[in-house]
Simulated scan of single mutants.
Amino acid sequence: MLGRGTSPRLLAAAMLAVCMVLVGPSAPNGGLFAGPRHAAAAGDVVPNRVMTWNICNPCEVSDVDRAADIAAYAPQVIGLQEACVRDVERIREYLENLHGLVYHVEYGSVLRKWGRCGGAPWSPGAFGQAILSAAPMTDPVNVEYPDGGSEDRGYMAVTTTVAGQSVRVFNTHLAQRRQEAVRADQTRVLAAEAARHDRAILLGDFNAVPDAPELTGIWALATDADPQCRPSPTGTCLPTTDWQSKFDYVFLRGFVPLRHRVHPTPYSDHHLLHTDVKPV
Results as ranks from 00 to 15, higher is better:
residue 2 L to Y: 10
residue 2 L to W: 07
residue 3 G to Q: 08
residue 8 P to R: 10
residue 8 P to F: 08
residue 11 L to W: 13
residue 12 A to R: 14
residue 14 A to P: 03
residue 18 V to G: 00
residue 22 L to F: 14
residue 24 G to W: 14
residue 28 P to V: 14
residue 34 A to G: 13
residue 37 R to M: 08
residue 38 H to K: 09
residue 43 G to N: 02
residue 44 D to P: 01
residue 44 D to H: 06
residue 48 N to W: 06
residue 48 N to C: 10
residue 51 M to F: 05
residue 51 M to Y: 01
residue 53 W to F: 09
residue 56 C to M: 14
residue 57 N to I: 11
residue 60 E to L: 10
residue 62 S to R: 09
residue 64 V to N: 03
residue 68 A to S: 12
residue 69 D to T: 13
residue 69 D to V: 15
residue 69 D to L: 11
residue 75 P to Q: 02
residue 76 Q to F: 01
residue 79 G to N: 05
residue 85 V to M: 12
residue 91 I to R: 00
residue 93 E to V: 15
residue 94 Y to V: 09
residue 99 H to Y: 15
residue 106 E to R: 12
residue 117 C to T: 06
residue 122 W to H: 12
residue 126 A to V: 01
residue 130 A to N: 04
residue 133 S to M: 13
residue 135 A to W: 09
residue 135 A to Y: 12
residue 137 M to N: 00
residue 139 D to I: 08
residue 139 D to V: 06
residue 151 E to M: 10
residue 153 R to N: 00
residue 164 G to V: 10
residue 166 S to P: 02
residue 169 V to R: 01
residue 173 H to N: 08
residue 173 H to V: 04
residue 176 Q to E: 09
residue 177 R to Y: 15
residue 178 R to P: 02
residue 179 Q to R: 05
residue 182 V to W: 02
residue 185 D to F: 00
residue 188 R to D: 13
residue 189 V to A: 05
residue 189 V to L: 08
residue 190 L to W: 03
residue 191 A to P: 13
residue 195 A to C: 10
residue 198 D to C: 01
residue 205 D to L: 02
residue 206 F to Y: 15
residue 207 N to T: 12
residue 214 E to M: 10
residue 215 L to D: 06
residue 215 L to F: 15
residue 217 G to D: 15
residue 219 W to I: 05
residue 222 A to F: 02
residue 223 T to D: 08
residue 232 S to V: 12
residue 234 T to N: 11
residue 237 C to H: 13
residue 237 C to T: 14
residue 238 L to C: 04
residue 240 T to A: 05
residue 241 T to S: 14
residue 242 D to I: 15
residue 244 Q to T: 10
residue 245 S to K: 11
residue 247 F to M: 11
residue 253 R to P: 07
residue 254 G to P: 12
residue 261 R to D: 06
residue 261 R to W: 02
residue 264 P to C: 03
residue 267 Y to G: 00
residue 268 S to P: 13
residue 269 D to C: 04
residue 271 H to M: 10
residue 273 L to I: 15
residue 275 T to A: 07
residue 279 P to V: 12
residue 280 V to F: 01
